[in-house]
């Protein structure tokens, strides 16, 4: 299976990236190399194998529903590229 130019463009849109034509070409070639290598996984028989998604056994951790205030608004807004002192400011979404 080869990844086409159009597929690289489609994935870039899903990943919210803008790629130059040059970068699309480069990534296309590199992805095919890397995926050829990844496809060696198909040599491994895994039909009856349960996937392992995390090395620890997760259990749901419950805690009391207590209201806490860890940080104040100013501290959380301080790193925002744009804020109005109360909220994050984003580009207009609805026309």
């Amino acid at each position: 299976m080869k990844i086409s130019h159009d597929e690289v463009v489609k994935v870039a849109a899903l990943a919210r990236l803008n790629l130059s034509e040059e970068k699309i070409e480069l990534f296309g070639v590199q992805f095919n190399d890397i995926l050829d290598y990844i496809h060696t996984l198909n040599q491994v028989e895994t039909n009856a194998v349960e996937p392992l998604y995390s090395p620890v056994t997760h259990s749901t951790v419950f805690r009391d529903d207590v209201v806490r205030k860890d940080y104040d608004r100013d501290a959380l807004l301080a790193n925002a590229p744009e804020n109005d002192g109360q909220f994050f400011v984003v580009p207009r979404i609805v026309g």
Partner: peptide, 19 residues
Amino acid sequence: GIRYGFRDGQARELIEMYR
């Protein structure tokens, strides 16, 4: 580009700003 970190301040539309 909204809560922290770099933002391209030139972008006018939301998705384009993300990208």
